[in-house]
Simulated scan of single mutants.
Amino acid sequence: MKMAFYGSSLLSSYWNGAATYYRGMLSELAKRGWDVTFYEPNAFDRQNHRDIEPPDWARVVVYDATPDACQTVIARAAEADVVVKANGVGVFDDELLNGVMDAANPRALRLYWDVDAPATLAELRQTPDHPLHRRLPQLDAVLTYGGGPPVVTAYQAMGARVCRPIYNALDPATHYPVPPQPRFAADLGFLANRLPDREARVERFFLEPAGHNPDGRYIIGGSGWETKGLPTNVTHVGHVGTADHNAFNASALAVLNVARNSMAEVGFSPATRVFEAAGAAACLITDAWEGVELFLAPDEEILVARDGQDVTDHLRALTPARARAIGEAARRRVLAEHTYARRGVEVDALLRDALAARRERSAA
């Protein structure tokens, strides 16, 4: 079975938080017999910041960010049994959405895979003429990497036939415990790019607690923070490639997850970082959001903070032994329930069932 997947980037996580999710999901689908071709634009300097070279489980087509090149890869959709347009490609998103859905073989499945459903839904509510409004009733399914019941209800109300959350997960082959590295040593580590939809929450949950604890050691990784005024006890280490995520997560007493505003408001949206940290057996502190207990048990497998003071209180009470116990419990939980292998089984069954149902309708 051939799958044509149009997304931001499989090869680079540079300003591309979906990379780990794409790699985990698509590598598992490849193990189940899917012939995956991933189309990504040469944009945002990502090709100069590759984390991986083209893998053996997918063909990667990198195309120039020009109208002609876009039309060339759109035409390739006709070759696939399943055509996937992901949100947030960053260039020619509307043209890709309309183009690949029109170019797809009539017998192919057409999917929209939303890796930022809360933001997409907010955009749809504010933009009545958004092309996705017209396309939703024509799609076979919308898959999202989070959002739970609120997102499913919203998408179906807008015309989606099927909406299924396919949550982030752990790939134990890429995220696992490693020895700590002095360059990432801290009381609290935080890893995320600087984005407008998250910055105020980062100030509240990370920067303000750091400023109120001048004797503590804090480290922040990710792009964009170099122009941000940081407390003197916060070290910025710039972009941290996926190859260094395990060391980053393993080197601090605890690491922090801060959801973007839209995801925190909707809930049921565990970020990739949650499972990466758990895979490395790190003690994770997360800002509070609805549904966290469906993935990790508060106070046993994860620490939940309602505000910056909670973050400070957690750190003050945290001993290395307790941090280690929480991290190890989180790793056991995600290995048992939240791996990409389990997600891959779910998506594979969904796609094959949908294709079989389509063939039966065609034969009737």
Results as ranks from 00 to 15, higher is better:
T312F: 00
I285M: 04
L303T: 01
R306G: 14
V292Y: 04
P298V: 00
L294R: 15
A297V: 13
I302K: 01
A282T: 00
E290W: 02
G291A: 06
E293P: 03
E290N: 14
A288L: 08
I285V: 11
V304N: 12
I302H: 06
E293Q: 12
A297F: 00
E293I: 01
G308A: 08
E293N: 09
W289P: 10
Q309A: 15
W289M: 14
D313W: 01
L303G: 06
V292D: 05
A288H: 10
V304Y: 11
E290S: 14
L284W: 02
T312R: 12
D310C: 12
L294P: 07
D313M: 05
E301M: 07
T286K: 05
D287S: 03
C283Q: 02
W289G: 09
E293H: 08
V311F: 02
V304A: 12
E301D: 08
D307S: 09
D310T: 00
I302G: 11
V292H: 08
V304I: 11
E293G: 11
T312G: 11
E300Q: 15
A305S: 09
T312K: 11
V304Q: 10
A288R: 14
D307L: 03
L294T: 13
L303H: 09
V292W: 01
L303A: 09
A288W: 03
D313I: 00
P298W: 03
E301H: 10
A282Q: 01
D287V: 00
A288N: 13
A305D: 04
P298S: 07
D299P: 01
A305P: 11
L294I: 02
D299L: 05
E300S: 14
L296I: 04
G291K: 07
I285P: 08
L303V: 02
A297L: 10
D299Q: 14
D307T: 00
F295P: 12
L284G: 01
T312M: 12
